[in-house]
C-alpha cells in the first residue's frame, strides 16, 4: 500500500491542474461566491485533490457494476395517508425572513 508521505509526493508530482476559470465556473454552479484570491487558492488545492483522485485510473473497472448503496436493498413504500399537521409557526421561527406565511427572497425574475 502506498501511504504518506511518499504517496502524497507522488500525487503532487503528477497533479491534474484545474484552472481559476474552471474554479469560478464550479463555484457558480454551487452558488459559492469567491474573490480572485480565493479562486486561485482553490485552484491549487482542488488540483492537488484531483491528482489524488486520478489514482483511480490505476484500476481497470470495465464491466464492474457501479455501487450506489452499501446494502442491496429495495425501496420501501409507505401507505398514502397524510400524517403531518401544520407546524408553520414553529418552522418559520427559524426563518430569516417571512411575511403572511411566505418565505421572502429577493425578487425571482423569470
Amino acid at each position: 500500500m502506498i501511504i504518506c508521505p511518499t504517496f502524497t509526493e507522488a500525487v503532487r508530482s503528477n497533479a491534474m491542474s484545474i484552472s481559476v476559470d474552471e474554479v469560478k465556473k464550479i463555484a457558480h454552479l454551487a452558488r459559492l461566491g469567491l474573490d480572485e484570491q480565493e479562486a486561485q487558492g482553490y485552484a491549487d488545492s482542488l488540483s492537488q485533490i484531483l491528482g489524488l483522485i486520478e489514482q483511480m485510473n490505476a484500476v481497470d473497472t470495465t464491466g464492474v457494476s457501479p455501487m450506489a448503496h452499501p446494502l442491496d436493498m429495495h425501496l420501501r413504500l409507505r401507505e398514502d395517508a397524510p400524517t403531518e399537521s401544520d407546524q408553520r409557526e414553529k418552522f418559520q421561527k427559524v426563518a430569516p425572513s417571512t411575511e403572511a406565511g411566505l418565505y421572502l427572497v429577493p425578487r425571482v425574475i423569470e
Binding site: L32, P96, P106
Partner: peptide
C-alpha cells in the same frame, strides 16, 4: 431561504445565494 444563516448584503437572488453560502 427557510432557516440558517443569510448574508446581510446582496442585490439580487443569485448574490444572496452566493454570499450566504460563501
Amino acid at each position: 431561504v427557510r432557516y440558517g444563516y443569510r448574508a446581510s448584503e446582496y442585490t439580487d437572488l443569485v448574490e444572496m445565494y452566493e454570499r450566504t453560502r460563501a
